[in-house]
Design a binder for these strands. Structure first.
Length: 462
RNA sequence: GUCCCGUUCGUCUAGAGGCCUAGGACACCGGGUUUUCAUCCCGGCAACAGGGGUUCGACUCCCCUACGGGAUGCCA
Protein backbone atom coordinates (compact mmCIF):
# COMPACT_ATOMS: atom_id res chain seq x y z
CA UNK A 1 0.00 0.00 0.00
CA UNK A 2 1.42 3.35 -1.00
CA UNK A 3 1.67 5.87 1.82
CA UNK A 4 -1.13 8.40 2.05
CA UNK A 5 -0.13 12.05 2.07
CA UNK A 6 -2.78 14.67 2.62
CA UNK A 7 -2.62 18.41 2.93
CA UNK A 8 -4.52 21.34 4.30
CA UNK A 9 -4.08 24.41 2.12
CA UNK A 10 -5.47 27.52 3.79
CA UNK A 11 -5.28 31.06 2.49
CA UNK A 12 -4.05 33.33 5.27
CA UNK A 13 -6.78 35.88 4.74
CA UNK A 14 -8.38 35.40 8.15
CA UNK A 15 -7.97 33.52 11.41
CA UNK A 16 -8.48 29.75 11.54
CA UNK A 17 -12.20 29.14 11.31
CA UNK A 18 -14.01 26.00 12.27
CA UNK A 19 -14.91 25.04 8.73
CA UNK A 20 -11.24 25.07 7.85
CA UNK A 21 -10.41 23.27 11.05
CA UNK A 22 -12.82 20.50 10.09
CA UNK A 23 -11.18 20.14 6.69
CA UNK A 24 -7.80 19.98 8.38
CA UNK A 25 -9.13 17.43 10.85
CA UNK A 26 -10.40 15.08 8.17
CA UNK A 27 -7.13 15.39 6.29
CA UNK A 28 -5.16 14.73 9.44
CA UNK A 29 -7.22 11.75 10.52
CA UNK A 30 -7.27 10.18 7.08
CA UNK A 31 -3.50 10.38 6.77
CA UNK A 32 -2.85 9.10 10.29
CA UNK A 33 -5.11 6.11 9.98
CA UNK A 34 -3.15 5.12 6.88
CA UNK A 35 0.22 5.65 8.51
CA UNK A 36 0.74 8.56 6.19
CA UNK A 37 1.65 12.20 6.47
CA UNK A 38 -0.32 15.37 6.95
CA UNK A 39 1.13 18.50 5.35
CA UNK A 40 0.26 22.17 5.26
CA UNK A 41 0.62 24.55 2.38
CA UNK A 42 -0.04 28.23 2.78
CA UNK A 43 -1.78 29.55 -0.31
CA UNK A 44 -0.72 33.16 0.03
CA UNK A 45 -0.61 34.15 -3.61
CA UNK A 46 -3.27 36.77 -3.03
CA UNK A 47 -0.87 39.45 -1.84
CA UNK A 48 -3.63 41.92 -1.17
CA UNK A 49 -5.44 39.92 1.48
CA UNK A 50 -2.84 37.53 2.88
CA UNK A 51 -0.98 38.46 6.05
CA UNK A 52 1.71 36.87 8.17
CA UNK A 53 -0.43 37.41 11.26
CA UNK A 54 -3.22 35.27 9.89
CA UNK A 55 -0.70 32.69 8.77
CA UNK A 56 0.75 32.47 12.26
CA UNK A 57 -2.71 32.30 13.77
CA UNK A 58 -3.70 29.38 11.56
CA UNK A 59 -0.48 27.46 12.14
CA UNK A 60 -0.43 28.05 15.90
CA UNK A 61 -4.04 27.09 16.34
CA UNK A 62 -3.70 23.92 14.30
CA UNK A 63 -0.68 22.82 16.31
CA UNK A 64 -2.18 23.66 19.67
CA UNK A 65 -5.36 21.76 18.94
CA UNK A 66 -3.33 18.72 17.98
CA UNK A 67 -3.22 18.84 14.20
CA UNK A 68 0.45 19.63 13.72
CA UNK A 69 1.82 18.94 10.24
CA UNK A 70 4.52 16.32 9.71
CA UNK A 71 6.74 18.69 7.77
CA UNK A 72 7.33 22.43 7.79
CA UNK A 73 4.58 24.25 5.90
CA UNK A 74 5.45 25.68 2.51
CA UNK A 75 4.40 29.07 1.21
CA UNK A 76 3.27 29.47 -2.35
CA UNK A 77 4.43 33.07 -2.39
CA UNK A 78 8.02 31.80 -2.23
CA UNK A 79 7.75 29.26 -4.99
CA UNK A 80 7.17 31.38 -8.05
CA UNK A 81 10.00 29.92 -10.13
CA UNK A 82 8.67 26.41 -9.70
CA UNK A 83 5.31 27.38 -11.10
CA UNK A 84 6.76 29.35 -13.96
CA UNK A 85 8.99 26.43 -14.82
CA UNK A 86 5.96 24.15 -14.88
CA UNK A 87 4.16 26.63 -17.12
CA UNK A 88 7.11 26.61 -19.51
CA UNK A 89 6.93 22.85 -19.64
CA UNK A 90 3.32 23.08 -20.70
CA UNK A 91 4.19 25.64 -23.38
CA UNK A 92 6.85 23.31 -24.74
CA UNK A 93 4.38 20.49 -24.96
CA UNK A 94 2.13 22.76 -27.01
CA UNK A 95 -0.72 22.60 -24.53
CA UNK A 96 -0.75 26.28 -23.67
CA UNK A 97 -0.82 29.51 -25.64
CA UNK A 98 -0.55 33.26 -25.15
CA UNK A 99 -3.67 35.31 -25.27
CA UNK A 100 -3.86 39.09 -25.59
CA UNK A 101 -7.51 39.61 -24.75
CA UNK A 102 -7.89 42.51 -22.36
CA UNK A 103 -10.10 42.29 -19.29
CA UNK A 104 -12.47 44.64 -21.09
CA UNK A 105 -12.63 42.35 -24.13
CA UNK A 106 -13.47 39.44 -21.87
CA UNK A 107 -16.10 41.31 -19.99
CA UNK A 108 -17.83 42.24 -23.23
CA UNK A 109 -17.57 38.67 -24.44
CA UNK A 110 -19.20 37.34 -21.27
CA UNK A 111 -21.92 39.92 -21.45
CA UNK A 112 -22.80 38.94 -24.99
CA UNK A 113 -22.79 35.27 -24.09
CA UNK A 114 -25.04 35.81 -21.10
CA UNK A 115 -27.46 37.86 -23.15
CA UNK A 116 -27.54 35.14 -25.78
CA UNK A 117 -28.47 32.70 -23.02
CA UNK A 118 -25.15 30.92 -23.10
CA UNK A 119 -22.74 29.93 -20.40
CA UNK A 120 -20.12 32.65 -20.07
CA UNK A 121 -16.75 31.17 -20.92
CA UNK A 122 -13.65 32.08 -22.83
CA UNK A 123 -14.23 31.28 -26.48
CA UNK A 124 -10.65 30.40 -27.35
CA UNK A 125 -10.29 33.22 -29.86
CA UNK A 126 -6.52 33.48 -29.42
CA UNK A 127 -5.95 29.77 -29.32
CA UNK A 128 -4.63 29.33 -32.83
CA UNK A 129 -3.15 32.76 -33.33
CA UNK A 130 0.37 31.83 -32.26
CA UNK A 131 0.71 35.07 -30.35
CA UNK A 132 4.07 35.93 -28.76
CA UNK A 133 4.51 36.63 -25.10
CA UNK A 134 4.29 40.32 -24.19
CA UNK A 135 3.60 42.22 -20.99
CA UNK A 136 -0.08 42.19 -21.90
CA UNK A 137 -0.57 38.52 -22.60
CA UNK A 138 -1.74 35.78 -20.28
CA UNK A 139 -0.88 32.12 -20.69
CA UNK A 140 -3.88 29.89 -21.20
CA UNK A 141 -4.18 26.13 -21.05
CA UNK A 142 -5.43 24.56 -24.27
CA UNK A 143 -8.16 22.42 -22.80
CA UNK A 144 -9.38 19.46 -24.87
CA UNK A 145 -12.56 20.50 -26.68
CA UNK A 146 -14.27 17.15 -26.55
CA UNK A 147 -14.33 14.11 -24.32
CA UNK A 148 -14.94 14.10 -20.61
CA UNK A 149 -13.15 14.10 -17.32
CA UNK A 150 -14.18 11.66 -14.64
CA UNK A 151 -13.41 12.71 -11.07
CA UNK A 152 -13.26 9.76 -8.72
CA UNK A 153 -14.47 10.98 -5.37
CA UNK A 154 -14.19 8.90 -2.22
CA UNK A 155 -17.41 10.34 -0.87
CA UNK A 156 -19.50 10.89 -3.99
CA UNK A 157 -18.34 8.25 -6.41
CA UNK A 158 -17.64 9.23 -10.02
CA UNK A 159 -18.47 12.75 -11.15
CA UNK A 160 -18.37 13.41 -14.90
CA UNK A 161 -17.68 16.67 -16.66
CA UNK A 162 -17.86 17.34 -20.38
CA UNK A 163 -14.72 19.01 -21.62
CA UNK A 164 -16.77 21.37 -23.74
CA UNK A 165 -18.11 22.88 -20.52
CA UNK A 166 -14.64 24.02 -19.59
CA UNK A 167 -12.84 26.96 -21.08
CA UNK A 168 -9.14 27.63 -21.45
CA UNK A 169 -8.16 28.79 -18.01
CA UNK A 170 -5.39 31.21 -17.27
CA UNK A 171 -2.15 29.69 -16.03
CA UNK A 172 0.03 32.78 -15.91
CA UNK A 173 -1.28 36.30 -15.48
CA UNK A 174 -0.07 39.14 -17.67
CA UNK A 175 2.33 40.14 -14.91
CA UNK A 176 3.82 36.68 -15.08
CA UNK A 177 2.48 35.38 -11.77
CA UNK A 178 0.85 31.96 -11.63
CA UNK A 179 -2.83 31.49 -10.82
CA UNK A 180 -4.42 29.35 -8.14
CA UNK A 181 -5.07 26.30 -10.28
CA UNK A 182 -1.51 26.04 -11.54
CA UNK A 183 0.03 26.52 -8.09
CA UNK A 184 -2.36 24.04 -6.59
CA UNK A 185 -1.60 21.31 -9.10
CA UNK A 186 2.14 21.86 -9.09
CA UNK A 187 2.34 21.86 -5.31
CA UNK A 188 0.21 18.77 -4.89
CA UNK A 189 2.69 17.07 -7.18
CA UNK A 190 5.79 18.55 -5.54
CA UNK A 191 4.52 17.67 -2.06
CA UNK A 192 3.71 14.17 -3.31
CA UNK A 193 0.12 14.50 -2.19
CA UNK A 194 -1.90 11.35 -2.81
CA UNK A 195 -5.29 12.42 -1.53
CA UNK A 196 -6.98 15.78 -1.80
CA UNK A 197 -9.61 16.28 0.89
CA UNK A 198 -11.31 19.65 0.63
CA UNK A 199 -14.68 21.38 0.67
CA UNK A 200 -17.29 20.58 -1.95
CA UNK A 201 -17.01 24.12 -3.25
CA UNK A 202 -13.97 22.78 -5.09
CA UNK A 203 -15.78 20.06 -7.00
CA UNK A 204 -16.05 22.07 -10.17
CA UNK A 205 -12.43 23.14 -9.90
CA UNK A 206 -11.32 19.55 -10.01
CA UNK A 207 -11.68 18.83 -13.74
CA UNK A 208 -9.74 21.99 -14.52
CA UNK A 209 -6.97 20.91 -12.26
CA UNK A 210 -6.94 17.45 -13.75
CA UNK A 211 -6.38 19.00 -17.17
CA UNK A 212 -3.35 20.82 -15.84
CA UNK A 213 -2.10 17.57 -14.30
CA UNK A 214 -2.53 15.85 -17.64
CA UNK A 215 -0.65 18.60 -19.45
CA UNK A 216 2.19 18.15 -17.00
CA UNK A 217 2.08 14.35 -17.05
CA UNK A 218 1.42 14.19 -13.33
CA UNK A 219 -0.10 11.09 -11.77
CA UNK A 220 -3.77 10.95 -10.80
CA UNK A 221 -4.87 11.98 -7.33
CA UNK A 222 -7.52 10.63 -5.06
CA UNK A 223 -10.25 13.12 -4.15
CA UNK A 224 -12.76 13.52 -1.36
CA UNK A 225 -15.05 16.54 -1.37
CA UNK A 226 -16.50 17.25 2.03
CA UNK A 227 -19.97 18.67 2.54
CA UNK A 228 -19.89 22.26 3.74
CA UNK A 229 -20.55 23.41 7.28
CA UNK A 230 -23.62 25.63 7.28
CA UNK A 231 -25.03 28.23 9.64
CA UNK A 232 -28.54 28.03 11.07
CA UNK A 233 -29.75 29.91 8.00
CA UNK A 234 -28.56 26.96 5.90
CA UNK A 235 -26.04 29.16 4.24
CA UNK A 236 -22.37 28.44 4.26
CA UNK A 237 -20.99 29.11 7.73
CA UNK A 238 -19.69 32.64 7.89
CA UNK A 239 -19.19 35.50 10.29
CA UNK A 240 -22.65 36.64 9.38
CA UNK A 241 -24.47 33.60 10.73
CA UNK A 242 -22.26 32.20 13.49
CA UNK A 243 -19.09 32.50 15.47
CA UNK A 244 -16.56 31.11 13.03
CA UNK A 245 -13.20 31.62 14.64
CA UNK A 246 -11.75 28.73 16.63
CA UNK A 247 -10.53 31.27 19.17
CA UNK A 248 -14.05 32.44 19.89
CA UNK A 249 -15.05 28.93 20.87
CA UNK A 250 -12.01 28.48 23.03
CA UNK A 251 -12.72 31.77 24.78
CA UNK A 252 -16.25 30.70 25.49
CA UNK A 253 -14.86 27.73 27.33
CA UNK A 254 -15.21 24.85 24.94
CA UNK A 255 -12.56 22.18 25.27
CA UNK A 256 -10.41 21.52 22.21
CA UNK A 257 -11.40 17.87 22.32
CA UNK A 258 -15.08 18.78 22.33
CA UNK A 259 -14.66 21.11 19.37
CA UNK A 260 -12.85 18.36 17.47
CA UNK A 261 -15.61 15.94 18.46
CA UNK A 262 -18.38 18.23 17.29
CA UNK A 263 -16.67 18.94 13.99
CA UNK A 264 -16.06 15.27 13.30
CA UNK A 265 -19.69 14.40 14.00
CA UNK A 266 -20.74 16.99 11.46
CA UNK A 267 -21.12 14.83 8.39
CA UNK A 268 -19.92 11.63 9.94
CA UNK A 269 -21.19 9.17 12.50
CA UNK A 270 -20.31 5.77 13.88
CA UNK A 271 -23.08 3.60 15.31
CA UNK A 272 -24.80 5.12 18.30
CA UNK A 273 -21.65 6.75 19.60
CA UNK A 274 -21.43 10.44 20.14
CA UNK A 275 -18.30 11.07 22.17
CA UNK A 276 -15.07 10.75 20.22
CA UNK A 277 -11.53 11.88 20.87
CA UNK A 278 -8.90 12.38 18.19
CA UNK A 279 -7.42 8.95 18.89
CA UNK A 280 -10.85 7.35 18.50
CA UNK A 281 -11.30 9.10 15.19
CA UNK A 282 -8.04 7.74 13.88
CA UNK A 283 -9.33 4.28 14.73
CA UNK A 284 -12.99 4.61 13.79
CA UNK A 285 -13.28 7.24 11.10
CA UNK A 286 -14.02 6.12 7.56
CA UNK A 287 -14.03 8.76 4.88
CA UNK A 288 -16.43 6.70 2.79
CA UNK A 289 -19.07 7.12 5.49
CA UNK A 290 -19.03 10.89 5.26
CA UNK A 291 -22.38 12.41 4.50
CA UNK A 292 -22.93 14.11 1.13
CA UNK A 293 -25.21 16.93 2.24
CA UNK A 294 -24.14 20.11 4.00
CA UNK A 295 -24.51 20.10 7.78
CA UNK A 296 -25.78 22.86 10.00
CA UNK A 297 -23.51 23.59 12.93
CA UNK A 298 -25.65 23.26 16.04
CA UNK A 299 -24.23 24.96 19.10
CA UNK A 300 -26.44 23.03 21.55
CA UNK A 301 -24.86 19.78 20.44
CA UNK A 302 -21.46 21.32 21.07
CA UNK A 303 -22.65 22.39 24.52
CA UNK A 304 -23.66 18.86 25.37
CA UNK A 305 -20.49 17.33 23.97
CA UNK A 306 -18.50 19.84 25.97
CA UNK A 307 -20.25 18.78 29.16
CA UNK A 308 -19.38 15.17 28.37
CA UNK A 309 -15.75 15.98 27.72
CA UNK A 310 -15.63 18.10 30.86
CA UNK A 311 -17.07 15.21 32.88
CA UNK A 312 -14.37 12.89 31.56
CA UNK A 313 -11.58 15.07 32.93
CA UNK A 314 -9.89 14.22 36.22
CA UNK A 315 -10.23 16.90 38.86
CA UNK A 316 -6.71 18.11 38.23
CA UNK A 317 -7.20 18.29 34.48
CA UNK A 318 -10.45 20.08 35.05
CA UNK A 319 -8.85 22.64 37.36
CA UNK A 320 -6.05 23.22 34.90
CA UNK A 321 -8.54 23.93 32.14
CA UNK A 322 -10.71 26.11 34.34
CA UNK A 323 -7.96 28.24 35.84
CA UNK A 324 -7.46 30.64 32.88
CA UNK A 325 -11.18 31.39 32.88
CA UNK A 326 -11.06 32.32 36.55
CA UNK A 327 -7.93 34.38 36.06
CA UNK A 328 -9.70 36.31 33.34
CA UNK A 329 -12.24 37.51 35.91
CA UNK A 330 -9.52 38.20 38.47
CA UNK A 331 -10.05 35.13 40.58
CA UNK A 332 -7.13 33.18 41.98
CA UNK A 333 -8.53 29.67 42.03
CA UNK A 334 -6.17 28.37 44.70
CA UNK A 335 -6.94 31.23 47.06
CA UNK A 336 -10.01 29.36 48.26
CA UNK A 337 -9.49 27.38 51.45
CA UNK A 338 -11.40 24.39 50.13
CA UNK A 339 -10.66 24.50 46.41
CA UNK A 340 -10.86 20.87 45.42
CA UNK A 341 -14.14 20.24 47.11
CA UNK A 342 -15.58 23.49 45.75
CA UNK A 343 -14.50 22.84 42.18
CA UNK A 344 -15.70 19.25 42.31
CA UNK A 345 -19.10 20.39 43.56
CA UNK A 346 -19.40 23.10 40.92
CA UNK A 347 -18.04 21.36 37.86
CA UNK A 348 -21.45 20.55 36.41
CA UNK A 349 -22.83 24.02 36.99
CA UNK A 350 -22.50 24.94 33.32
CA UNK A 351 -21.65 23.35 29.98
CA UNK A 352 -18.77 25.72 29.38
CA UNK A 353 -15.71 26.69 31.38
CA UNK A 354 -16.55 30.37 31.20
CA UNK A 355 -20.02 29.59 32.51
CA UNK A 356 -18.59 27.57 35.37
CA UNK A 357 -16.17 30.37 36.18
CA UNK A 358 -19.09 32.77 36.31
CA UNK A 359 -21.04 30.58 38.67
CA UNK A 360 -18.01 30.39 40.98
CA UNK A 361 -17.88 34.14 41.51
CA UNK A 362 -19.94 34.15 44.75
CA UNK A 363 -17.47 31.73 46.30
CA UNK A 364 -14.55 34.06 45.76
CA UNK A 365 -15.95 37.57 45.73
CA UNK A 366 -18.60 39.64 47.49
CA UNK A 367 -21.95 39.58 45.82
CA UNK A 368 -23.98 42.62 44.95
CA UNK A 369 -26.69 41.22 42.76
CA UNK A 370 -29.63 39.20 43.96
CA UNK A 371 -32.33 37.26 42.21
CA UNK A 372 -35.20 39.55 43.22
CA UNK A 373 -37.87 37.01 42.37
CA UNK A 374 -36.24 34.51 44.69
CA UNK A 375 -36.16 37.09 47.45
CA UNK A 376 -39.87 37.79 47.00
CA UNK A 377 -40.64 34.13 47.09
CA UNK A 378 -38.52 32.97 50.00
CA UNK A 379 -37.84 35.96 52.18
CA UNK A 380 -41.20 37.42 53.01
CA UNK A 381 -40.50 36.84 56.68
CA UNK A 382 -37.54 38.87 57.85
CA UNK A 383 -37.77 37.40 61.31
CA UNK A 384 -37.01 33.96 59.99
CA UNK A 385 -33.90 35.29 58.32
CA UNK A 386 -32.80 36.78 61.64
CA UNK A 387 -33.48 33.52 63.41
CA UNK A 388 -31.41 31.70 60.85
CA UNK A 389 -28.63 34.20 61.32
CA UNK A 390 -28.63 33.51 65.01
CA UNK A 391 -28.77 29.78 64.39
CA UNK A 392 -25.63 29.96 62.28
CA UNK A 393 -23.97 32.25 64.76
CA UNK A 394 -24.54 29.53 67.33
CA UNK A 395 -22.76 26.78 65.41
CA UNK A 396 -19.43 26.33 67.07
CA UNK A 397 -17.92 23.44 65.12
CA UNK A 398 -17.82 24.78 61.58
CA UNK A 399 -17.93 21.46 59.75
CA UNK A 400 -20.35 19.67 57.46
CA UNK A 401 -21.88 17.38 60.09
CA UNK A 402 -22.60 19.95 62.73
CA UNK A 403 -23.86 22.49 60.20
CA UNK A 404 -26.25 19.99 58.73
CA UNK A 405 -27.56 18.75 62.06
CA UNK A 406 -28.12 22.31 63.28
CA UNK A 407 -30.13 23.05 60.17
CA UNK A 408 -32.25 19.91 60.33
CA UNK A 409 -32.89 20.37 64.03
CA UNK A 410 -34.00 23.92 63.47
CA UNK A 411 -36.25 22.83 60.67
CA UNK A 412 -37.85 20.11 62.79
CA UNK A 413 -38.30 22.29 65.86
CA UNK A 414 -40.02 24.99 63.85
CA UNK A 415 -41.94 22.61 61.63
CA UNK A 416 -40.68 24.31 58.51
CA UNK A 417 -40.24 22.97 55.00
CA UNK A 418 -36.72 22.49 53.74
CA UNK A 419 -36.81 25.25 51.13
CA UNK A 420 -38.21 27.67 53.70
CA UNK A 421 -35.07 27.21 55.73
CA UNK A 422 -32.49 26.62 53.03
CA UNK A 423 -33.35 29.03 50.27
CA UNK A 424 -33.02 32.23 52.31
CA UNK A 425 -29.52 31.16 53.33
CA UNK A 426 -28.66 30.23 49.78
CA UNK A 427 -29.86 33.58 48.53
CA UNK A 428 -27.77 35.36 51.15
CA UNK A 429 -24.68 33.42 50.10
CA UNK A 430 -24.94 33.30 46.33
CA UNK A 431 -27.62 35.81 45.43
CA UNK A 432 -29.61 32.97 43.88
CA UNK A 433 -31.36 29.75 44.78
CA UNK A 434 -28.72 27.70 43.02
CA UNK A 435 -25.86 26.00 44.80
CA UNK A 436 -24.64 22.55 45.78
CA UNK A 437 -26.15 20.93 48.89
CA UNK A 438 -26.60 23.66 51.47
CA UNK A 439 -24.47 22.09 54.17
CA UNK A 440 -21.64 21.65 51.70
CA UNK A 441 -22.16 25.13 50.34
CA UNK A 442 -21.82 26.58 53.84
CA UNK A 443 -18.48 24.86 54.29
CA UNK A 444 -17.20 26.75 51.26
CA UNK A 445 -17.46 29.93 53.32
CA UNK A 446 -16.11 30.86 56.71
CA UNK A 447 -18.69 31.37 59.43
CA UNK A 448 -17.73 35.00 59.46
CA UNK A 449 -18.46 35.44 55.76
CA UNK A 450 -21.77 33.65 56.07
CA UNK A 451 -22.84 36.03 58.86
CA UNK A 452 -21.69 39.04 56.88
CA UNK A 453 -23.70 38.00 53.85
CA UNK A 454 -26.77 37.33 55.94
CA UNK A 455 -26.45 40.74 57.55
CA UNK A 456 -26.09 42.29 54.14
CA UNK A 457 -29.31 40.68 52.98
CA UNK A 458 -31.03 41.76 56.21
CA UNK A 459 -29.93 45.33 55.55
CA UNK A 460 -31.25 45.11 52.05
CA UNK A 461 -34.61 43.92 53.33
CA UNK A 462 -35.00 46.68 55.89
C1' G B 1 -28.98 31.01 -17.91
C1' U B 2 -25.49 26.66 -18.08
C1' C B 3 -22.74 22.81 -15.54
C1' C B 4 -21.97 20.21 -10.94
C1' C B 5 -23.37 18.54 -5.98
C1' G B 6 -27.22 17.66 -2.70
C1' U B 7 -32.52 16.76 -0.16
C1' U B 8 -34.68 11.12 6.40
C1' C B 9 -37.47 14.21 13.05
C1' G B 10 -36.20 21.61 14.73
C1' U B 11 -30.63 19.94 14.46
C1' C B 12 -26.63 15.94 13.74
C1' U B 13 -27.50 11.26 11.84
C1' A B 14 -28.75 5.27 11.19
C1' G B 15 -30.71 3.04 7.01
C1' A B 16 -26.77 -0.83 0.79
C1' G B 17 -35.18 -3.60 -1.77
C1' G B 18 -38.53 -7.00 2.77
C1' C B 19 -35.05 -6.71 9.57
C1' C B 20 -38.93 0.14 9.28
C1' U B 21 -44.82 0.24 13.50
C1' A B 22 -38.19 4.37 10.04
C1' G B 23 -33.42 3.50 15.05
C1' G B 24 -29.92 6.72 18.04
C1' A B 25 -28.16 11.57 19.83
C1' C B 26 -28.91 16.91 20.84
C1' A B 27 -32.77 20.35 21.68
C1' C B 28 -37.73 20.56 23.61
C1' C B 29 -41.79 18.67 26.95
C1' G B 30 -43.20 15.47 31.20
C1' G B 31 -41.74 12.34 35.49
C1' G B 32 -38.03 10.44 39.13
C1' U B 33 -33.43 11.24 42.15
C1' U B 34 -31.19 15.69 44.45
C1' U B 35 -33.61 19.67 51.02
C1' U B 36 -32.54 24.11 45.65
C1' C B 37 -29.72 24.22 40.93
C1' A B 38 -26.81 21.25 37.87
C1' U B 39 -25.57 16.16 37.09
C1' C B 40 -27.92 11.43 36.58
C1' C B 41 -32.22 8.05 35.42
C1' C B 42 -37.07 7.10 33.00
C1' G B 43 -40.79 8.53 29.47
C1' G B 44 -42.85 11.59 25.42
C1' C B 45 -43.03 14.70 20.95
C1' A B 46 -41.05 14.61 16.12
C1' A B 47 -38.85 12.98 9.61
C1' C B 48 -38.23 9.56 4.36
C1' A B 49 -39.29 17.21 -0.49
C1' G B 50 -43.28 16.10 -4.49
C1' G B 51 -44.68 13.15 -8.71
C1' G B 52 -43.97 9.18 -11.92
C1' G B 53 -41.80 4.47 -12.97
C1' U B 54 -39.03 -0.61 -11.98
C1' U B 55 -40.51 -4.58 -8.45
C1' C B 56 -44.62 -9.37 -5.38
C1' G B 57 -42.43 -5.34 -2.26
C1' A B 58 -39.01 0.91 -2.22
C1' C B 59 -36.34 5.55 2.67
C1' U B 60 -33.32 2.39 -0.29
C1' C B 61 -32.92 1.57 -7.80
C1' C B 62 -34.32 4.88 -12.39
C1' C B 63 -36.64 9.46 -14.42
C1' C B 64 -38.93 14.25 -13.91
C1' U B 65 -40.20 18.51 -10.92
C1' A B 66 -39.33 21.62 -6.75
C1' C B 67 -36.09 23.52 -3.33
C1' G B 68 -31.03 24.39 -1.38
C1' G B 69 -25.83 24.86 -2.29
C1' G B 70 -21.43 25.38 -5.39
C1' A B 71 -19.01 26.80 -9.94
C1' U B 72 -19.11 29.87 -14.08
C1' G B 73 -12.61 35.71 -12.14
C1' C B 74 -5.78 37.99 -14.84
C1' C B 75 -9.66 35.42 -6.01
C1' A B 76 -8.17 31.24 -3.51
Amino acid sequence: MKPVITRFAPSPTGTLHIGGLRTALFNYVYSKQNNGKFLIRIEDTDRERSTKEFEKNILDNLSSIGLAPDEDPINQSERNEIYVKAAEKIIESGKAYWCDCSPEDLELMRKEQTEAGKKPMYDGRSRNLGLPKTDKTVLRLATPESGEIVVKDLIRGEIKFNNNELDDLILLRSDGTPTYHLCNVVDDFEQKITTVIRGEDHISNTPRQIHIQNALDYPELEYAHLPLVLGTDKKRLSKRNAATSLEEYREKGYLDSAIINALARLGWSQGNNEVFYLTDLIKEFNIKDVQKAGAIFDISKLDWLNSQHLANLTLNQFKKNLEPFLNKINIDMESHSNVDSLIEAMRTSSDTLSGIAQSLIPYYQDINEYDEKAIDKFISDKNLLMQLRDLIDGINDWNLDSIESSLTNFQAENKLSTPAVNQPIRIALTGSTKSPGLGLTLTFFSKKTVLERMDKLLDKKS
